[in-house]
Design a protein around this nucleic acid. Structure first.
Length: 504
RNA sequence: GGCCCCAUCGUCUAGUGGCCCAGGACACGGCCCUCUCAAGGCUGAAACAGGGGUUCAAAUCCCCUUGGGGCUACCA
């Protein structure tokens, strides 16, 4: 099976019953890429035929996820198109009409078996160690009997007549030929008693009406594909090309679910991942360009993508690797764009992960621009802006006394270092990185300490942390006055502490 | 239980009969660089699930076993 070169029409057809997770969105992404590559159309269609499970928030999240990842659609909700509407609940008459047509042509029939009866049937089968399946009893109901049930208010469904022998096969674009024995299938429902179609009927009608050429969907649909083939036959239409993509699993190799932590694209957005990085990463789950290339722009992916190279086996979502990739993307960004991305996270309320509420909003752009080069290559997530830059914005910091001593330093030595540092800090001019470094290195020599030893307590005094951007750039950015105050403050903290320094 | 799908380092993967005593990336260990943390460079450990075939030759083809997953709804 080769990858298409002529324009494809592909669709992403989510059901608004839950926030779309990574695996689901990855399918949308494959669709989008293929559509862009072949100059085809990417269609979005909402499959909301299950009215009891409909969730408006989920529907919102679907569009938000697509927007965030930049998966723009050519036809669909909010966009329109030649096959409107793109919401199944608004296409109900089509499905009902098709179901009636199938009944008339003898491919389907009305069934008045109640859910209770169905349940009882399955219980009996289970008890007899038989596979639970519908026994086709509705096939023998007369129109009169059905009408009586209808009058009595019993639920009526439409079921497809499945031949009891023979087999169906199809060529899956990623797996090759797959065959199913028809006797394994029972007569399944195509129109529910609320006059809504099941997925099986609805998607086929829509895909056909919308001219969908390739159905790209998760692996879990392979088992119901024979049903879909049967419906196509009954309707006298040709099935599309099926492309069943492998699932994305959680760390424990189980289907992705809530307990795996972040599972939706939106959660990754909120955790500070870049859409481009997530896009890139998701493409690599279940697909590879065939060489060692991993970092690719959308354009490169669009150019290189191929159905032939979609993997057969499921992938586990490794968020550690995503973090690395996100860091790569951040490092490749220019400072202006980085600032634009960082700002929304840093300007959130403190309680939501932003800078201290005492820091004035909007944040001083010029100052932030000056700081970014110091932390740029250290960031892996956009949410880290706050924690790596907070001390630049704070009036003062309060380091823990036990953090102040550097390697192989006791309290006395630390005190001497800080005292000398404070003194020098007051007089250094100009207060610039090169000047500071030169003078502090000289100071270290003068008080007979290794540069690293002298710098450690200063760093902690200035930043409140044991790790930070390069010290002298940091000091220069913070300014002489605040630096002096912080070193003196640290000295005070050190002297008032009675605890021994922690073993280094 | 039945049916279907899947199976290369911990993870993502390259590999489509000889180029593979299996390559890359993340993570992990070591070294270098170094004012800390990163970044970067070098380097190490780490896999063809098992068993049968086919073949001069198999990670690659076939069969079985095992393991994982999915489906078996008036959910999608």
């Amino acid at each position: 099976m080769t990858s298409p070169t002529s324009p494809v029409r592909v669709r992403y057809a989510p059901s608004p019953t839950g926030i779309p997770h990574i695996g689901n969105i990855r399918t949308a992404l494959f669709c989008w890429v293929l559509a862009r590559q072949t100059n085809g159309q990417f269609i979005v269609r909402i499959e909301d035929t299950d009215r009891s499970r409909y969730d408006a928030d989920a529907e919102k999240a679907i569009f938000e996820s697509l927007d965030w990842l930049g998966l723009d659609w050519d036809e669909g909700p909010g966009k329109g198109g030649p096959h409107s509407p793109y919401v199944q609940s608004e296409r109900q008459e089509t499905y009902v009409a098709a179901a009636m047509q199938l009944v008339e042509s003898g491919h389907a029939y009305f069934d008045d078996t109640t859910p209770e009866q169905l349940h009882a049937l399955r219980e009996r089968q289970r008890a007899a160690k038989q596979p639970p399946r519908y026994d086709g009893r509705g096939r023998h109901r007369s129109p009169q009997e059905i009408e009586e049930s209808r009058q009595a208010g019993l639920p009526i469904t439409v079921r497809l007549k499945v031949p009891d022998h023979g087999s169906v096969s199809f060529i899956d674009a990623v797996r090759g030929k797959i065959t199913f024995e028809l006797r394994e299938l029972d007569d399944f429902v195509i129109l529910k008693s609320d006059q809504m179609p099941t997925y099986h009927l609805a998607h086929i009608l829509d895909d056909h009406a919308m001219g969908v050429t390739h159905v790209i969907r998760g692996d879990e649909w392979i088992s119901s594909t024979p049903r879909h083939l049967l419906i196509h036959q009954a309707l006298g239409i040709d099935p599309p090309t099926y492309v069943h993509v492998p699932l994305i699993l959680g760390k424990d190799k189980a289907k992705l679910s809530k307990r795996h932590g972040a599972t939706s694209a939106l959660e990754y957005r909120d955790q500070g991942f870049l859409a481009d990085a997530v896009f890139n990463f998701m493409c690599l789950l279940g697909w590879s360009p065939g060489d060692d290339t991993e970092i690719m722009t959308r354009e490169q992916i669009v150019e290189r993508f191929s159905i032939d190279r979609i993997n057969d086996s499921p992938a586990i979502f490794d968020s550690e690797k995503l973090e690395w990739l996100n860091g790569v993307y951040i490092r490749n960004m220019d400072e202006q764009s980085l600032m634009a991305r960082l700002l929304p996270f840093m300007e959130r309320p403190e309680a939501e992960g932003g800078l201290s509420d005492t820091v004035e909003r909007p944040i001083d752009r010029d100052y932030l621009m000056r700081l970014l080069p110091l932390v740029h290559e250290r960031l892996k997530l956009l949410t880290e802006g706050t924690e790596t830059l907070d001390f630049f914005f704070a009036d003062n910091v309060s380091p823990a006394a036990e953090d102040l001593p550097g390697r192989k330093m006791d309290m006395e030595m630390t005190g001497r270092a800080l005292a000398a540092a404070a003194e020098l800090c007051r007089v250094t001019t100009p207060f610039e990185p090169e000047q500071l470094e030169a003078e502090y290195r000289a100071l270290a020599e003068k008080i007979e300490m290794k540069p690293g030893q002298l710098f450690s307590p200063i760093r902690v005094a200035i930043t409140g942390k044991t790790f930070a951007p390069p010290l002298f750039d940091t000091m220069a950015a913070i300014g002489q006055e605040r630096c002096v105050a912080r070193i003196e403050n640290a000295l005070k903290i050190l002297r008032s502490s009675t605890v021994a320094p922690a073993e280094q």
